Simulated assay, not measured.
Amino acid sequence: MAVIKIKENYCKGCLLCVPVCHHNSLVISETLNDQGLYPVRFKEGGKCDGCKKCAIMCPDVAIEIYN
């Protein structure tokens, strides 16, 4: 199982990463980041197989995947 790290202060909440996650493990956060935006977060109990599609889609390089 891979580990996903989302840099909340880099994320602008564009949600481009959400539909490419085939495990539906990315959701919009309920708390604001330092920019006053709602970043994406990894869902509690979510799965990540390390496909890196979300990281590739992110225009702000806010997602890192570690296998």
Rank of each mutant, 00 (worst) to 15 (best):
I56D: 12
V40S: 11
D49R: 04
I63V: 14
V27P: 02
P39V: 05
L37M: 13
Y38D: 01
V3G: 08
I4M: 15
V61C: 10
H22R: 08
I65H: 02
L26G: 08
L16H: 01
Y10D: 12
L37D: 06
N33K: 08
I63M: 06
K47H: 04
V20G: 13
Y66V: 15
K12R: 12
A2P: 15
C21D: 05
N24E: 08
C58P: 05
K7C: 04
K12N: 07
G36N: 02
K7A: 14
A55E: 13
C54T: 01
L26N: 04
K53R: 14
C21T: 06
I6W: 01
P59W: 00
K47R: 07
I65V: 15
E64T: 08
N67I: 10
N67Q: 07
L37I: 03
M57D: 04
I4N: 05
Y38R: 09
N24C: 09
T31W: 01
K43N: 10
L15Y: 02
V3F: 08
G13V: 12
N33H: 02
G13T: 07
G45Q: 08
P39K: 05
D49H: 03
G45W: 03
L15C: 12
G46H: 04
N9R: 08
S25H: 02
E44N: 13
L16Y: 06
K47Y: 04
H23I: 07
V27K: 05
H22A: 09
H23G: 06
V27W: 00
K52F: 02
K5L: 14
K52H: 09
K43C: 10
A55Q: 11
P19S: 09
N67P: 14
K52Q: 11
Y10L: 15
I63A: 04
R41E: 15
E44K: 14
Y10E: 11
D34M: 07
G45D: 07
F42S: 06
I28R: 13
C48V: 02
R41C: 14
P39C: 12
C48Q: 01
G36T: 07
M57F: 10
M1H: 13
F42G: 06
P39N: 05
Y10S: 14
P19K: 04
I4F: 11
Y10A: 15
K43I: 14
E44S: 14
K43Y: 03
V61Y: 08
L16C: 09
I65F: 02
Y10Q: 12
C54I: 02
K47Q: 09
L15I: 12
C48M: 06
F42W: 01
L15S: 13
H22Y: 05
Y66W: 05
V18T: 06
I63Q: 02
N24S: 11
L26A: 06
C21I: 09
I4G: 14
G45N: 03
H23P: 04
S29Q: 04
C58N: 05
K12E: 09
Y38T: 03
L16M: 12
K12S: 13
K47M: 08
A2H: 09
Y66R: 14
A62W: 01
V40M: 09
C11L: 14
Y66F: 15
A62Y: 01
